[in-house]
Design a protein around this nucleic acid. Structure first.
Length: 443
RNA sequence: GUGGCUGUAGCUCAGUUGGUUAGAGCACUGGAUUGUGGUUCCAGAUGUCGCGGGUUCGAGUCCCGUCAGCCACCCCA
């Protein structure tokens, strides 16, 4: 077959899957590095699990919807397998399997891609990286508090300020539903309730009556609580009154109160913590605290970090009870958000220094200079061919290098070089010997 | 999975009731300038009009299908 007649295959990517060019991959890796650093600073340790699991491990944990969205197939050995939908269910399997080796409480982080067969939209992909962090093996609210602190710290470390956590507790909702004798229809009711912000109370009431089979009075009672507004203290007070007589409801209120009070005392601005008894979240495994995180400037992109407490997640794999609490940063959604907010710097090189190449004969000298910079911890690149200087500088410019080093024969002989500060459009003449130290103090 | 909108150069878009060889800006490449970058000037290259089929003497334009993106639902990071 000749080249001319060869049938070309159209290069393309699957719907909802994406390529990452350096200009996106560099900030993406920076995001991950920030998450990693924050997780470790709280004592979370990394783990990894396979992308593919037996379907029976993954199915039926998050609800019917999640099962529908799972990529599932039969492998060559006739096994029924699926790609993980999130990192929490694999954690439950992992913890059940290795708990004896791990000991409790066990704090882990896990940054890895997950796959969902959803309709893609802005900030919604079929393959995306989640950065999960969880504390398993303790029922203490203190763990819930720490998870909220980590969420707050990660976003702060990324330089974000205009964000807030919406916090609720499933026990509050369950207490109310118990009181109204609606516990059996909780899934349908919570699903309707979750839309309150979008569709308004009338539509929610209608959906509760039609989909969940509640009476108008029951629906109104749910809505009455969900629509409580005010400061966190006021909301807690009113909810507590409404849930009078419900033990589980009061437990939820007490947990929320401790969470918010402690976080505020520890220095988190109260405006970033909003108790919102209308958020429910669709994942079926949550039993206590629930978190969602929104950017003030981009609420429509959805929650960029969500999670909650689950007290029974491992019950399907183990007789031992395995409570836990955790949350997940939606790295790719966060990246899309930062991009839309114009917070992604257009840099396409990870190294700050470009060394211009003039004298092919002295290539070894250029290369060893670059190495001496690298040894000093400074990323450096030698231009690959002795092109015109203007073109080499143009390349440096476009790639976002911060410095260019210019050395020709005379400079080599004299032991000097010109260091250009590309952003400031200035330059200085220094000896080659002091270059690494000079750059180290500039970087 | 359901419904809607969109698809023309690398990017943002123009393109008349269907009519010859599909345009602009930005970006790109080269030169002005063989050792000094973001500005300027000159020159140049670029498209199976997303893809496939249909109607027509003739389709970027109309119809159907398909793929992709966006939006709403569902759900969610």
């Amino acid at each position: 077959m000749t080249k001319e007649k060869r049938q070309l295959i159209t290069p393309r990517t699957l719907k909802g899957f994406q390529d990452f060019l350096p200009e996106m991959m560099l900030p993406r890796e920076n995001l991950m590095a920030t998450c990693r650093q924050v997780f470790r600073s709280f004592g979370f340790a990394p783990i990894d699990t396979p992308a593919l699991e037996y379907s029976e491990i993954l199915l039926g944990k998050g609800g019917n919807e999640t099962d529908k969205q799972m990529f599932r197939f039969t492998d060559h050995g006739d096994r029924d397998v699926a790609m993980r939908f999130d990192l929490t269910v694999p954690l439950a399997r992992f913890a059940s399997q290795h708990l004896n080796e791990l000991g409790t409480p066990f704090k882990r982080y896990h940054m890895a891609p997950v796959w969902r067969g959803e309709k893609p939209q802005m900030g919604r992909f079929r393959e995306f990286i989640q950065c999960d962090f969880d504390i398993v093996g303790t029922t203490s609210v203190n763990a819930d508090i720490e998870i909220a602190m980590v969420i707050h710290e990660v976003l702060s470390a990324l330089g974000l300020e205009a964000f807030y956590l919406r916090i609720n507790n499933r026990k509050v909702l369950n207490g109310l539903l118990d009181k109204l004798e609606l516990a059996d229809q909780s899934a349908a009711i919570l699903r309707a309730l979750d839309k309150l912000d979008k569709v308004g109370p009338q539509a929610v009431q209608t959906e509760m009556i039609e989909q969940a089979g509640t009476t108008a009075q029951q629906a109104d009672a749910v809505l009455q609580m969900a629509q409580i507004k005010g400061t966190n203290d006021e909301v807690l007070k009113q909810v507590s009154e409404l849930l009078e007589g419900s033990e589980i409801g009061q437990t939820g209120v007490a947990e929320l109160e401790k969470l918010v009070k402690t976080l505020t005392k520890s220095g988190i601005p109260e405006k970033r913590l909003r108790i919102d008894v209308s958020i429910a979240r669709g994942l079926d495994y949550y039993t206590g605290t629930i978190y969602e995180t929104f950017l003030e400037d981009l609420p429509k992109i959805g929650s960029i970090c969500s999670g909650g407490r689950y007290d029974n997640l491992a019950e399907l794999y183990s007789k031992q009870s395995l409570p836990g609490v955790g949350a997940s940063v939606g790295l790719d959604r966060l990246l899309a958000a930062l991009q839309q907010l114009g917070k992604i710097e257009p840099v396409t090189t990870p190294a700050p220094v470009l060394i211009a190449l003039f004298e092919e004969d002295r290539l070894a000298d250029y290369l060893s200079l670059a190495n001496s910079l690298r040894k000093a911890g400074i990323g450096a690149e030698v231009y690959p061919e002795p092109k015109r200087l203007g073109q080499q500088l143009k390349y440096a410019d476009r790639r976002g290098f911060r410095f260019a080093v210019i050395i020709g024969s005379q400079e080599f002989d004299a032991g000097t070089c010109q260091l250009k500060h590309l952003q400031e459009k200035t330059s200085e003449e220094i000896t080659i010997a002091e270059l690494p130290m000079r750059l180290a103090e500039l970087c």
